[in-house]
């Protein structure tokens, strides 16, 4: 095994182009587990923690540009206002030790359906910026996940950053685990209300081969809120609307039975979480009258 420690992004991309089978490591929360147990023996291990650009976030053209190497702990501490859904998701990830090392870029690269960041990124309409020596491109996050632990990147590409437009409305994130901390999700749900464009964003985790949105639920809710004038009136949300939204979210999933939970439970849990998340988000929206939309 070789070990490479590029200090610039150009150097990292050159190396990845020269060694497409190189495994990039940042927080090590997936890669090192594989190596420790002999399940992963890459010929080249490339440490990305010395590439400074990756460790920063900034505001660019009105969007948060989150470097792929920013830790969950920093997302929680520094980006709670700009990326509330992602910050809530980050708080549910592993332990403090894991949150100090793990990165959103790593979560995307692994592309596990159980990755905690995905539902929040989906709900917030994030884009993933990937790069190679050939140039860079932006992939809308729903298109990024292509299969179980597969993503849309080419062999010579690395993740540069995630771009997310700060919210115009409330966001929520809920995750089921069978322990009260440090647990892999059995099912997860992310929600973003986008009052500025009268839209709704959703994200489902651990309930399909890939993280995915629930488009019918989004459309239903956006239509309801628009059709009944609720965006403007901020009146109470009918319980039936939240219930129907929950059902539609569950309809979008296609879970399996596995060691962490049954498919039927996952569907049920999604509908409950979606209904509750919407209720909480709407309550926030109703009290957040200061913000013009």
């Amino acid at each position: 095994m070789d070990f490479l420690q590029p200090t610039t992004w150009a150097e990292a991309l050159e190396a990845k182009a020269a060694h497409p089978d190189a495994v990039a490591v940042a927080g090590g929360t997936d890669v090192m587990v594989g190596i420790n147990f002999g399940h992963l023996r890459p010929s080249l291990l490339m440490d990305l923690t010395r590439v400074e650009d990756l460790q920063e976030w900034s505001i660019e053209d009105g969007a948060v540009r989150l470097g792929a190497g920013v830790s969950y702990a920093r997302v929680i501490a520094e980006l709670g206002t700009q990326l509330p859904g992602l910050a809530m998701a980050s708080r549910t990830i592993g332990s403090p030790q894991i949150r100090n090392r793990g990165t959103v870029g790593g979560n995307l690269a692994t592309a596990s359906p159980a990755g905690d960041a995905h539902p929040a990124l989906l709900a917030a309409d994030a884009q993933v910026e990937v790069a190679s020596v050939r140039g860079s491109r932006r992939i809308p996050v729903p298109d990024f996940y292509t299969g179980v632990k597969r993503n849309a990147m080419d062999a010579d590409e690395l993740i540069t950053a995630v771009l997310v437009v700060p919210p115009s409305g409330p966001q929520q994130y809920s995750k089921i685990g069978t322990r009260n901390a440090m647990v892999i999700s059995v099912a997860a749900f992310g929600l973003a209300l986008h009052p500025d464009r009268r839209a709704v964003g959703t994200g489902i985790g651990s309930a399909a081969p890939t993280p995915r949105r629930a488009p019918a639920a989004e459309q239903f809710l956006a239509d309801e809120l628009t059709g009944t004038g609720l965006w403007e009136s901020r009146a109470e949300l009918p319980a039936a609307t939240a219930g129907r939204f929950g059902e539609l979210v569950a309809d979008a999933a296609s879970p399996i039975d596995d060691v962490r939970g049954s498919a039927r439970y996952r569907l049920h849990a999604l509908s409950v979480m979606a209904c509750r998340a919407l209720t909480w988000a709407w309550a926030d929206y109703r009290t957040d009258t200061g913000k013009e939309v």
Partner: peptide
């Protein structure tokens, strides 16, 4: 949330 079933995973604020 730390007092709730589900903990910081934010699954209930008392509902159910």
């Amino acid at each position: 949330l730390r007092d709730m079933p589900g903990g910081v995973s934010n699954t209930t604020h008392g509902e159910g």
